[in-house]
Amino acid sequence: MQRRAHPALIAFAVLTFLFLIGPLVIIVGAALSDTSYLTFPPQGLTLHWFQNVFEISAFKRTMITSFQLAVGGTALSMAIGIPAAYAMARYRIELPRFLGNVFVLPILVPEIVLGFSLMKSVAVGSGVPIMGALLLGHALLVLPYCVRVVGASLNSFDFSIEEAAVSLGCPRWKAFFTVVLPNVKPGIIAGFILAFITSLNDVSISIFLTGPGVSTLPIQLLAHMEQFFDPTIASVSVLLMFVTVAVMAIVERTLGLTFLTK
């Protein structure tokens, strides 16, 4: 087919990809510029702005909070999402059909509505500490990823292997940990890492649940942008792009990036 693709169509696709990648290249250039304002192409090269990121304590602090939250929220979500996905795949007939939709409900409720509702009912209404409310919000945010990606792996798992282990005398819980889990490990790793980056980048939920004392990196970035317009933000953005690259490398190694087109 590729030999029959119209040249105009190819040119169009090239322009689209320039449009997609160009702005990110501009950020990288701006982060390296030896000027106190954002510019592209960079004038003089420096890593000063990267150093600056680690000198601003608000960035350091929120970076740590964001990582803790992304790991904690995803771990919580996986801890309850894996059993749920397993139950859905293994005992499909025993569970009501709507239950599968319950776990992806967070997709249907706009994030910003969830953030606002959590703030109103859980943080203010029930006095749950900010960090706890953030953790719950992020666990809910990533639950659909956990259940779906792990579920996709479980659906292609042959449960007769598990049955074989059990009929040979292996306790059920042990069969789960030594037979089922190792077989769906790629799905768990990919699900974890996709959930991690989703949580790390979240704005709409965190914006309602951060306040004096507790904030996340994206929220801190938004606040910083409203006051300063120097290349420090571009540098933080570049650091976040490195995280994206790492995430993509892990997804490619486990399920393959084409998984994301399915």
């Binding site: 790390l200 980048n201 994206p218 970035l221 953005s237 792009m241 994206t244 990036l257 994301l260």
Partner: peptide, 10 residues
């Protein structure tokens, strides 16, 4: 995928 996984703030 790269822009998709890069945060909305960035």
């Amino acid at each position: 995928v790269f822009p998709l996984l890069t945060g909305v703030v960035v």
